[in-house]
Design a protein around this nucleic acid. Structure first.
Lengths: 142, 142
DNA sequence: TTGTTTGTGGACATTCATATCCACATATGA
DNA sequence: TCATATGTGGATATGAATGTCCACAAACAA
């Protein structure tokens, strides 16, 4: 997968919350709707709450709700908060010895990650909503 | 990382073998040169041998050697052989119920993987060699 | 104040990619 | 034929990502 399972889960939950903007959703509701394991979901959402992207409310009629406007919230915002994509800042062998042999390879590998980040930064949550006009963009796989 | 650790290891080894085309390299030599754990390298190369991309020779003066021309061997060839990139062919929740809400998201995620595959298919091993003209292509990370 | 509903945080379990080790098979040269 | 140098395959170990569980804290309503 392009992103970790955990990041995927977080994105599903955020898209769902954006689709039901304003209404708080309980963990079981969210889990049922998104297919995220009920007992794992709170762990996934924790960093989003810490960084103020989500709001969590305890007690009766509590639950989770989206704080920011889905149009101003990028897919990369979610990924970076929950599980940032690993970047290659230096060749694994260090600058010495065989560095040159491996450099072009890792430039390519990290370039692919950079391109993915670019796409995720450009795509906002509102573009992923069912009825949004943003639904029609790049062509599907194959 | 864009690809698994194992695929990275395989690519390092193949690039090294391409750079020393024709000469067989023993596992310890390859491991030392590429930074791959010596005891893990044989496992990594196994699928490449099975599919005929590498040749393995036992006994004195044995070792590993590249079979195909580096100019005709793509990065994706190696990845697909060792550890194919997971593609998303259907939304995780299946076609029922909330399928629509998640579809655009997973189209985006798989699209990023598809783009990476495209890059890896277009880049051949000879372009990753130290002195090759192909070394100068896309700009580095950041 | 009390009971119920909700999220929180931490301990623990499970799974899988990664890594190690070793007895064995095979090739070479003397 | 024998000694040595190699890769092979399988059992096992390790560590990180994923997933489960539960006692607790907090919010609301009666």
């Amino acid at each position: 997968m392009a992103v970790s399972q955990t990041a995927d889960y977080a994105l599903r939950a955020v898209v769902w919350l954006a689709h039901h903007h304003g209404q708080t959703q309980t963990a079981p509701q969210l889990a049922e709707a998104t297919g995220v394991p009920t007992s794992y979901l709170p762990k996934v959402l924790q960093p989003l709450i810490r960084d103020g992207l989500l709001r969590a409310q305890r007690g009766l009629h509590g639950g989770y709700a989206l704080v920011r406007d889905p149009a101003l919230l990028s897919v990369l915002d979610i990924i970076n908060c929950v599980d940032p994509m690993p970047r290659i800042h230096a060749c694994p062998l260090g600058p010495g010895r065989h560095h040159d042999e491996l450099c072009a390879l890792h430039r390519l590998l990290d370039g692919a990650t950079a391109e993915a980040e670019r796409r995720f930064a450009e795509t906002h949550i509102d573009a992923l909503l069912p009825v949004s006009p943003g639904t029609r963009d790049a062509d599907p796989h194959d």
